[in-house]
Design a binder for these strands. Structure first.
Lengths: 216, 216
DNA sequence: TAGATTGTTAATCGATTAACAATC
DNA sequence: TAGATTGTTAATCGATTAACAATC
C-alpha cells in the first residue's frame, strides 16, 4: 500500500493543486520546488518532501512536469471522480455551502439537501428542492452518497449524523460545534469556526500585550 | 511575558471552554483531567499539559476549579472583551457569518458589513445595513475595529485586505481561497474550505482503497 | 564541463505520551 | 494511611529543516 500522507502535507495539497493548475493555464509545463516555494512562501525542501509524499518524480536539473503533478494530486485526493454528498440543514451556512460551485471541481457534489423544519421543505435552493428527513432513506438508496455534510444546530448534530450513518454514509463533514459519535470506519471531519476564531483572537491578544504585559 | 501557547493546544481550548461551561451549568465546581479526557476523548496527560499552558493550577487529589479554568481561558483567548470586526463581502458565506450569534459569546462582534456591488449596498442584513467600500475609512475611524473578515471572491481578496490594513485593521480572518499579503505585524488566519474538503476526501479515498490498492 | 535541480540522509525541533514523584 | 490526582521530568514520535550526494 502507498505510504500514507501526513496531515500537514495533506492540508497543503489543495494549495499546490490550485497553484499548479494556474501555472498550467499560463502555458507552463514544468515547475521547480524553488519556484513553488517562492510563490507559496514555503521552504523548497518542504515542497520537495510534499511532492515526494504523493509519489511525484521530477527530472533532475529540470523540475517536475505540471501535468503529472496535477493528475497525481487528483488521484490522491479523490478529485476527478465526483463524490456525492447529502446536506443536512439548510440554514444560512448550509445554503452558503450549496452556493460553492467550485466544490464540484474539487470532487464534491451535493445531490440532496434536507431540513427538519416543515416550513423549509419544498423550497428550491440552487437547483435542489429541500427534502424532509423521512425521505432520506429512500434518496440514499437512489443516490448512494458517501458524504454527509452537517450544518444543523449543535443539539441536533448527533441525530443527523446517526441518520446519515444508518443510511450508509461513510464520511461526515461536521460544521456543528460539537464532537459527534460514529461507529468505527466512519470518518468525521470537524469544521469548527469557534475553534478558528479562538486561534485568531489569541494571536491578536498576543501581539497587543507583547512587551506591555508582564506576568506577576 | 507568559509562555506562548502551542497551536494544537490553542485549537483545543474552545472545546475545553465549551465543555467547562457546560459542566458549570450542571452545578459542578471541580473537574479532573481524567474526566475531561474521558468526555473529550483526549489523553489525560495531554489535558494536563494544555491546562498548564494556560497557567491553570489544580489542587492535587481534587482537580481543577471550573470557574478558574473558564476565566483563565477567557483571558488567554480574548473572550470577555468584545473585539469589533468589519465584514468584507456579503455573499452567502458572509451572510451566514452574520447569522452566527454565538460569535459574541466568543469575543467577536461584527459592527459593519461592506460590499463592492452597488446593488447590495443599503440592504439590511441582521440589523446591519450593507455599506459601500468608500465609507470604510470613515466607519473605521468611528468603530476602530481590529479584525477584518474577508468573504469576497478570491480575485478580490487582496484588495479587500489592503483596504482593511490601510485603515488600521490588525487581524484578517480570510475565507477566500488564496494567500494574501500583509505587512509585518498584521495577523492572517486562513479558513479554506477546499483545504478541509481535500483532507476529508483523502481520508475517504484511503479507507476505500485500503488493502485493495497495491503500488506497482 | 558547470551548475541547477532532484533525491536522500541526518539533525533539529516541537508536540505527545509515558513514567514517576509530590501531596492533599 | 492509602489512594487519587496534580506536577514534573524523560522518552517517543513525527514533521520540518539542513546538508550533501547524484545527475541531467
Amino acid at each position: 500500500m502507498e505510504r500514507s500522507i501526513p496531515e500537514p502535507t495533506l492540508r497543503r495539497l489543495p494549495g499546490y493543486y490550485r497553484y499548479f493548475r494556474d501555472l498550467q493555464s499560463t502555458g507552463a509545463q514544468l515547475v521547480s520546488c524553488a519556484l513553488v516555494g517562492r510563490d507559496l512562501f514555503l521552504d523548497p525542501t518542504l515542497v520537495r518532501k510534499d511532492l515526494e509524499s504523493i509519489s511525484a518524480v521530477g527530472k533532475r536539473r529540470v523540475g517536475f512536469v505540471l501535468a503529472d503533478l496535477v493528475s497525481s494530486i487528483e488521484k490522491r485526493l479523490g478529485y476527478g471522480g465526483l463524490n456525492r454528498a447529502f446536506l443536512m440543514g439548510t440554514g444560512s451556512l448550509g445554503t452558503a455551502l450549496l452556493g460553492y460551485k467550485k466544490f464540484r471541481e474539487y470532487g464534491l457534489e451535493i445531490v440532496a439537501a434536507f431540513d427538519a423544519a416543515a416550513s423549509r421543505v419544498g423550497e428550491r435552493l440552487q437547483d435542489l428542492e429541500v427534502q424532509p428527513l423521512d425521505r432520506l432513506p429512500e434518496l440514499a438508496r437512489e443516490w448512494n452518497p458517501q458524504i454527509g455534510i452537517v450544518t444543523v444546530p449543535a443539539d441536533h448534530a448527533q441525530e443527523a449524523v446517526d441518520l446519515l450513518v444508518a443510511n450508509g454514509i461513510r464520511a461526515i463533514w461536521n460544521f456543528a460545534p460539537v464532537r459527534v459519535q460514529v461507529p468505527p470506519g466512519v470518518i468525521v471531519q470537524r469544521e469548527d469556526l469557534y475553534r478558528s476564531l479562538a486561534t485568531l483572537l489569541y494571536k491578536l491578544v498576543l501581539t497587543q500585550q507583547d512587551v506591555v504585559d508582564c506576568p506577576m
